[in-house]
Computed example of a mutant assay.
Amino acid sequence: MLNMVEEQLKMEVIRDNNRWNEVVSSFEKSDVYYTYEYCSAAAKQEGGIARLIYYKNAYGTVIYPIIIRKIETRMEKPLFDITTPYGYGGPLIMGEKEILKEFKSIFHSYCKSTGIVTEVIRFHPLLNNVSYSESYCELQYIRKTTAVDLEFELPIIRESYSKMNRRNISKAHKHGLQCREVEKNTENIMVFWKLYKETMNRKNASNYYYFNKNFIEQQLKNTPISKSHLLFVFHGEKIISAVILFTAPLFAHYHLGASDSEYLSYKPNNLIFDFMVEVAKKEGSMLLHLGGGYQENDSLFKYKTSFTNNNLFDFYIGKNIFDHTLYNEIIADKEFSADSDEEYFPLYRSY
Protein backbone atom coordinates (compact mmCIF):
# COMPACT_ATOMS: atom_id res chain seq x y z
CA MET A 1 0.00 0.00 0.00
CA LEU A 2 2.75 2.46 0.94
CA ASN A 3 4.75 1.81 -2.23
CA MET A 4 1.70 2.17 -4.51
CA VAL A 5 0.80 5.58 -3.09
CA GLU A 6 4.40 6.78 -3.10
CA GLU A 7 4.72 6.13 -6.82
CA GLN A 8 1.62 8.26 -7.55
CA LEU A 9 2.75 11.41 -5.73
CA LYS A 10 4.28 14.54 -7.20
CA MET A 11 5.94 14.81 -3.82
CA GLU A 12 8.99 12.54 -3.86
CA VAL A 13 9.31 9.83 -1.23
CA ILE A 14 12.95 8.79 -1.44
CA ARG A 15 14.32 5.36 -0.53
CA ASP A 16 17.51 5.27 -2.60
CA ASN A 17 20.77 6.01 -0.77
CA ASN A 18 22.40 8.10 -3.50
CA ARG A 19 19.30 10.13 -4.32
CA TRP A 20 18.64 10.73 -0.62
CA ASN A 21 22.09 12.14 0.12
CA GLU A 22 22.18 14.09 -3.14
CA VAL A 23 19.05 15.97 -2.04
CA VAL A 24 20.26 16.52 1.54
CA SER A 25 23.70 17.70 0.36
CA SER A 26 22.04 20.32 -1.88
CA PHE A 27 20.72 22.16 1.18
CA GLU A 28 22.69 25.16 2.43
CA LYS A 29 22.10 23.98 6.00
CA SER A 30 21.51 20.37 6.98
CA ASP A 31 22.88 17.92 9.51
CA VAL A 32 23.89 14.30 10.13
CA TYR A 33 20.36 13.48 11.36
CA TYR A 34 19.07 14.06 7.82
CA THR A 35 21.42 11.63 6.07
CA TYR A 36 20.50 8.22 4.68
CA GLU A 37 23.11 6.41 6.77
CA TYR A 38 21.91 7.83 10.05
CA CYS A 39 18.19 7.52 9.34
CA SER A 40 18.32 3.98 7.96
CA ALA A 41 20.22 2.78 11.06
CA ALA A 42 17.75 4.55 13.36
CA ALA A 43 14.82 3.01 11.48
CA LYS A 44 16.15 -0.52 12.03
CA GLN A 45 16.54 0.23 15.73
CA GLU A 46 12.92 1.47 15.81
CA GLY A 47 11.61 -1.49 13.82
CA GLY A 48 10.47 0.75 10.97
CA ILE A 49 11.45 1.95 7.50
CA ALA A 50 13.25 5.19 6.63
CA ARG A 51 12.03 7.62 3.99
CA LEU A 52 13.11 11.10 2.93
CA ILE A 53 10.19 13.32 1.99
CA TYR A 54 11.20 15.83 -0.69
CA TYR A 55 8.98 18.61 -2.01
CA LYS A 56 9.64 21.62 -4.21
CA ASN A 57 7.51 24.48 -5.50
CA ALA A 58 7.90 28.17 -6.39
CA TYR A 59 8.54 29.10 -2.75
CA GLY A 60 11.46 26.72 -2.27
CA THR A 61 12.25 23.18 -1.12
CA VAL A 62 11.38 20.95 1.84
CA ILE A 63 13.23 17.89 3.10
CA TYR A 64 11.89 15.75 5.93
CA PRO A 65 13.40 12.40 6.99
CA ILE A 66 10.91 10.11 8.74
CA ILE A 67 10.63 6.62 10.18
CA ILE A 68 7.42 4.79 9.35
CA ARG A 69 6.46 2.22 12.00
CA LYS A 70 3.69 -0.32 11.96
CA ILE A 71 1.16 -0.09 14.79
CA GLU A 72 0.36 -3.50 16.22
CA THR A 73 -3.43 -3.80 16.48
CA ARG A 74 -6.11 -6.43 16.00
CA MET A 75 -7.65 -4.40 13.17
CA GLU A 76 -7.64 -5.82 9.64
CA LYS A 77 -6.33 -2.64 8.00
CA PRO A 78 -2.55 -2.10 8.40
CA LEU A 79 -1.90 1.10 10.35
CA PHE A 80 1.29 3.11 10.82
CA ASP A 81 2.74 6.12 12.57
CA ILE A 82 5.76 8.27 11.83
CA THR A 83 8.51 9.75 13.96
CA THR A 84 11.83 11.47 13.43
CA PRO A 85 15.02 9.44 13.95
CA TYR A 86 16.61 9.49 17.42
CA GLY A 87 18.15 12.92 17.82
CA TYR A 88 16.74 15.90 15.99
CA GLY A 89 14.99 16.52 12.68
CA GLY A 90 11.66 17.69 11.30
CA PRO A 91 10.72 19.49 8.07
CA LEU A 92 13.57 21.70 6.91
CA ILE A 93 13.00 24.38 4.29
CA MET A 94 15.25 26.24 1.88
CA GLY A 95 13.35 29.28 0.63
CA GLU A 96 10.19 30.94 1.93
CA LYS A 97 8.17 29.55 4.85
CA GLU A 98 4.99 29.77 2.74
CA ILE A 99 6.03 26.48 1.15
CA LEU A 100 4.93 24.65 4.30
CA LYS A 101 1.24 25.34 3.61
CA GLU A 102 1.16 23.34 0.36
CA PHE A 103 3.64 20.79 1.71
CA LYS A 104 1.41 20.15 4.72
CA SER A 105 -1.63 19.63 2.50
CA ILE A 106 0.12 17.14 0.21
CA PHE A 107 2.10 15.29 2.87
CA HIS A 108 -0.83 14.93 5.24
CA SER A 109 -2.96 13.60 2.38
CA TYR A 110 -0.25 11.01 1.79
CA CYS A 111 -0.33 10.05 5.47
CA LYS A 112 -4.11 9.64 5.53
CA SER A 113 -4.15 7.60 2.31
CA THR A 114 -1.47 5.17 3.55
CA GLY A 115 -2.96 4.48 6.98
CA ILE A 116 -0.55 6.71 8.92
CA VAL A 117 -2.39 7.75 12.07
CA THR A 118 -0.01 10.02 14.00
CA GLU A 119 3.21 12.01 13.61
CA VAL A 120 5.83 12.94 16.22
CA ILE A 121 8.65 15.38 15.40
CA ARG A 122 11.76 16.15 17.43
CA PHE A 123 12.64 19.57 16.05
CA HIS A 124 16.27 20.58 15.55
CA PRO A 125 17.30 23.22 18.13
CA LEU A 126 20.26 24.53 16.13
CA LEU A 127 18.52 24.67 12.75
CA ASN A 128 15.52 26.26 14.51
CA ASN A 129 13.02 24.73 12.09
CA VAL A 130 10.37 25.04 14.80
CA SER A 131 10.32 28.79 14.09
CA TYR A 132 8.26 28.32 10.92
CA SER A 133 6.30 25.21 11.94
CA GLU A 134 3.55 26.66 14.15
CA SER A 135 0.92 26.14 11.45
CA TYR A 136 2.22 22.66 10.58
CA CYS A 137 1.57 20.84 13.86
CA GLU A 138 0.83 21.17 17.55
CA LEU A 139 4.03 22.35 19.23
CA GLN A 140 5.23 21.47 22.73
CA TYR A 141 8.24 23.07 24.36
CA ILE A 142 10.36 20.43 26.12
CA ARG A 143 13.54 22.01 27.51
CA LYS A 144 16.68 23.99 26.74
CA THR A 145 19.72 22.46 25.08
CA THR A 146 23.21 23.91 25.02
CA ALA A 147 26.18 24.14 22.65
CA VAL A 148 29.81 25.25 22.68
CA ASP A 149 30.53 28.16 20.34
CA LEU A 150 33.66 27.06 18.45
CA GLU A 151 34.27 30.40 16.75
CA PHE A 152 36.98 31.40 19.23
CA GLU A 153 40.45 29.96 19.71
CA LEU A 154 40.70 26.91 21.96
CA PRO A 155 42.37 28.69 24.93
CA ILE A 156 39.58 31.31 24.95
CA ILE A 157 36.89 28.62 24.79
CA ARG A 158 38.48 26.78 27.70
CA GLU A 159 38.78 29.98 29.71
CA SER A 160 34.97 30.34 29.47
CA TYR A 161 34.41 26.99 31.22
CA SER A 162 33.13 27.26 34.78
CA LYS A 163 35.76 27.32 37.54
CA MET A 164 34.55 23.98 38.91
CA ASN A 165 34.79 22.43 35.47
CA ARG A 166 38.37 23.63 34.99
CA ARG A 167 39.29 22.25 38.42
CA ASN A 168 37.79 18.87 37.53
CA ILE A 169 39.72 18.76 34.26
CA SER A 170 42.92 19.48 36.20
CA LYS A 171 41.98 16.71 38.64
CA ALA A 172 41.61 14.25 35.73
CA HIS A 173 45.08 15.18 34.48
CA LYS A 174 46.53 14.70 37.99
CA HIS A 175 45.13 11.17 38.01
CA GLY A 176 47.05 10.52 34.79
CA LEU A 177 43.98 10.19 32.57
CA GLN A 178 44.51 10.52 28.83
CA CYS A 179 42.07 10.98 25.92
CA ARG A 180 42.59 9.46 22.52
CA GLU A 181 40.57 9.04 19.36
CA VAL A 182 40.63 5.33 18.49
CA GLU A 183 39.93 3.25 15.43
CA LYS A 184 36.28 2.36 14.82
CA ASN A 185 37.06 -1.33 14.66
CA THR A 186 35.06 -4.28 16.00
CA GLU A 187 37.06 -4.56 19.22
CA ASN A 188 36.68 -0.88 20.16
CA ILE A 189 33.01 -0.82 19.23
CA MET A 190 32.44 -3.80 21.53
CA VAL A 191 34.26 -1.99 24.35
CA PHE A 192 32.04 1.05 23.88
CA TRP A 193 28.85 -1.01 23.70
CA LYS A 194 29.59 -2.91 26.92
CA LEU A 195 30.47 0.30 28.75
CA TYR A 196 27.33 1.95 27.35
CA LYS A 197 25.10 -0.89 28.57
CA GLU A 198 26.64 -0.64 32.06
CA THR A 199 25.97 3.10 32.06
CA MET A 200 22.32 2.62 31.06
CA ASN A 201 21.94 0.04 33.85
CA ARG A 202 23.38 2.51 36.36
CA LYS A 203 20.98 5.22 35.23
CA ASN A 204 17.93 2.91 35.17
CA ALA A 205 17.34 4.01 31.59
CA SER A 206 14.20 3.03 29.69
CA ASN A 207 14.38 0.18 27.17
CA TYR A 208 14.39 2.71 24.32
CA TYR A 209 17.97 3.75 25.14
CA TYR A 210 19.42 0.22 25.17
CA PHE A 211 20.72 0.46 21.62
CA ASN A 212 22.00 -2.79 20.14
CA LYS A 213 25.59 -3.25 18.95
CA ASN A 214 24.62 -3.10 15.28
CA PHE A 215 23.01 0.31 15.80
CA ILE A 216 26.18 1.58 17.49
CA GLU A 217 28.30 0.21 14.64
CA GLN A 218 26.11 1.89 12.02
CA GLN A 219 26.26 5.22 13.88
CA LEU A 220 30.04 5.15 13.60
CA LYS A 221 30.02 5.21 9.80
CA ASN A 222 30.83 8.49 8.08
CA THR A 223 28.22 10.13 5.85
CA PRO A 224 28.66 12.47 2.85
CA ILE A 225 28.22 15.49 5.13
CA SER A 226 29.59 14.31 8.48
CA LYS A 227 32.29 12.30 10.23
CA SER A 228 31.98 10.11 13.30
CA HIS A 229 34.61 9.79 16.02
CA LEU A 230 35.11 7.25 18.80
CA LEU A 231 36.86 8.85 21.77
CA PHE A 232 38.20 6.98 24.82
CA VAL A 233 39.59 8.03 28.19
CA PHE A 234 42.40 5.78 29.44
CA HIS A 235 43.63 5.22 32.98
CA GLY A 236 46.79 3.39 32.13
CA GLU A 237 45.54 0.73 29.71
CA LYS A 238 42.02 0.65 31.14
CA ILE A 239 39.22 2.43 29.24
CA ILE A 240 37.08 4.28 31.77
CA SER A 241 34.99 6.66 29.63
CA ALA A 242 33.93 6.84 25.98
CA VAL A 243 32.01 9.07 23.61
CA ILE A 244 30.64 8.97 20.07
CA LEU A 245 31.05 12.38 18.46
CA PHE A 246 29.68 13.60 15.11
CA THR A 247 31.40 16.47 13.31
CA ALA A 248 30.44 18.46 10.22
CA PRO A 249 31.19 21.95 8.86
CA LEU A 250 28.16 23.44 10.65
CA PHE A 251 27.49 21.35 13.74
CA ALA A 252 29.23 18.76 15.86
CA HIS A 253 27.12 16.61 18.20
CA TYR A 254 27.83 14.74 21.40
CA HIS A 255 25.88 11.64 20.40
CA LEU A 256 26.33 8.89 23.01
CA GLY A 257 28.50 8.57 26.09
CA ALA A 258 29.47 5.92 28.63
CA SER A 259 31.66 5.68 31.72
CA ASP A 260 32.92 3.25 34.36
CA SER A 261 31.28 4.09 37.70
CA GLU A 262 34.38 3.04 39.67
CA TYR A 263 36.40 5.91 38.19
CA LEU A 264 33.86 8.75 38.16
CA SER A 265 35.69 10.47 41.03
CA TYR A 266 38.67 10.83 38.69
CA LYS A 267 36.52 13.15 36.52
CA PRO A 268 36.98 11.34 33.18
CA ASN A 269 33.78 12.85 31.78
CA ASN A 270 35.02 16.41 32.23
CA LEU A 271 38.19 15.43 30.41
CA ILE A 272 36.44 13.74 27.50
CA PHE A 273 33.98 16.62 27.04
CA ASP A 274 36.94 18.97 26.81
CA PHE A 275 38.50 16.58 24.29
CA MET A 276 35.28 16.68 22.24
CA VAL A 277 35.63 20.45 22.09
CA GLU A 278 39.21 20.07 20.86
CA VAL A 279 38.30 17.51 18.18
CA ALA A 280 35.24 19.44 16.97
CA LYS A 281 37.28 22.64 16.78
CA LYS A 282 40.02 20.85 14.82
CA GLU A 283 37.42 19.48 12.38
CA GLY A 284 36.16 23.01 11.67
CA SER A 285 32.67 22.75 13.17
CA MET A 286 30.94 25.99 14.18
CA LEU A 287 29.03 24.62 17.19
CA LEU A 288 29.36 21.55 19.40
CA HIS A 289 25.87 20.59 20.52
CA LEU A 290 25.84 18.85 23.90
CA GLY A 291 22.05 18.44 24.11
CA GLY A 292 20.05 19.00 27.27
CA GLY A 293 19.24 17.31 30.55
CA TYR A 294 16.58 14.82 31.50
CA GLN A 295 14.50 17.72 32.78
CA GLU A 296 14.73 21.48 32.53
CA ASN A 297 17.75 22.86 34.38
CA ASP A 298 18.65 19.57 36.09
CA SER A 299 22.15 18.56 37.23
CA LEU A 300 23.05 17.05 33.83
CA PHE A 301 22.07 20.24 32.05
CA LYS A 302 24.04 22.37 34.52
CA TYR A 303 27.06 20.12 33.95
CA LYS A 304 26.80 20.61 30.19
CA THR A 305 26.45 24.38 30.49
CA SER A 306 29.70 24.44 32.47
CA PHE A 307 31.33 23.97 29.03
CA THR A 308 29.11 26.28 26.98
CA ASN A 309 29.01 29.60 28.81
CA ASN A 310 25.19 29.24 28.84
CA ASN A 311 24.83 29.24 25.05
CA LEU A 312 21.23 27.96 24.97
CA PHE A 313 18.69 26.72 22.41
CA ASP A 314 15.03 25.68 22.61
CA PHE A 315 14.00 22.07 22.01
CA TYR A 316 10.42 21.42 20.85
CA ILE A 317 8.47 18.42 19.72
CA GLY A 318 5.55 18.47 17.29
CA LYS A 319 2.43 16.29 17.18
CA ASN A 320 -0.25 15.50 14.61
CA ILE A 321 -3.21 13.13 14.61
CA PHE A 322 -4.36 12.43 11.05
CA ASP A 323 -7.39 10.31 11.95
CA HIS A 324 -8.88 10.93 15.41
CA THR A 325 -11.41 8.12 15.06
CA LEU A 326 -8.72 5.55 14.28
CA TYR A 327 -6.49 6.97 17.02
CA ASN A 328 -9.21 6.44 19.63
CA GLU A 329 -9.99 2.96 18.28
CA ILE A 330 -6.32 1.95 18.61
CA ILE A 331 -6.24 3.21 22.20
CA ALA A 332 -9.41 1.27 22.98
CA ASP A 333 -7.83 -1.83 21.43
CA LYS A 334 -4.80 -1.67 23.73
CA GLU A 335 -4.58 -3.04 27.24
CA PHE A 336 -2.81 -0.42 29.33
CA SER A 337 -1.09 -1.04 32.63
CA ALA A 338 -1.97 0.95 35.72
CA ASP A 339 1.22 3.03 35.42
CA SER A 340 0.72 4.02 31.76
CA ASP A 341 1.55 7.69 31.14
CA GLU A 342 -1.65 9.33 29.91
CA GLU A 343 0.30 12.38 28.73
CA TYR A 344 2.55 10.29 26.46
CA PHE A 345 2.01 10.74 22.73
CA PRO A 346 0.94 8.70 20.95
CA LEU A 347 -0.82 7.14 23.91
CA TYR A 348 -0.95 3.67 22.35
CA ARG A 349 2.88 3.50 22.60
CA SER A 350 2.98 4.39 26.31
CA TYR A 351 2.59 0.84 27.63
Rank of each mutant, 00 (worst) to 15 (best):
I66Q: 01
N309S: 12
G318I: 01
I317S: 02
E159Q: 03
T146M: 00
S259K: 09
P91W: 04
L250K: 12
P346E: 00
G95A: 11
F80C: 07
F275T: 11
H324V: 03
S170H: 03
I53S: 06
E6V: 03
Q45G: 03
Y64Q: 12
F313D: 01
V5R: 13
P249Y: 09
I169C: 01
N188R: 09
N214P: 00
K104Q: 05
Y38C: 07
F345D: 11
S226K: 08
F273R: 05
Y351P: 11
H173F: 06
K104G: 10
N309A: 12
T35C: 05
N270H: 13
N212G: 12
E283V: 04
L52F: 08
P346M: 05
T199K: 07
V62Y: 04
L220R: 06
L288F: 12
I225W: 12
K112W: 00
T199M: 15
K56T: 13
V148R: 08
W20L: 01
K144Y: 14
Q8T: 15
H175N: 15
E283H: 05
G47C: 10
T35E: 11
S306F: 11
M164G: 15
Q295A: 10
D274Q: 09
P249C: 06
S350T: 07
N188P: 09
A147N: 04
F315E: 01
L256Y: 03
K70E: 15
R166W: 00
I93K: 09
V117P: 14
T146W: 03
N168F: 14
P224C: 02
I225S: 12
W193M: 03
L300Y: 01
V117R: 10
N212K: 09
T199Y: 10
T84I: 01
Q295R: 07
F107R: 08
Y64R: 11
E153P: 02
V233C: 08
G95T: 13
M11W: 04
Y303E: 02
V62P: 04
T73F: 00
K267F: 08
V117I: 15
S113H: 06
E153F: 02
Y54F: 15
F123W: 05
H175I: 10
L79I: 05
Y55G: 08
T35K: 07
S206K: 10
F234S: 05
Y351K: 13
K221A: 04
L245F: 03
A58C: 07
K101N: 11
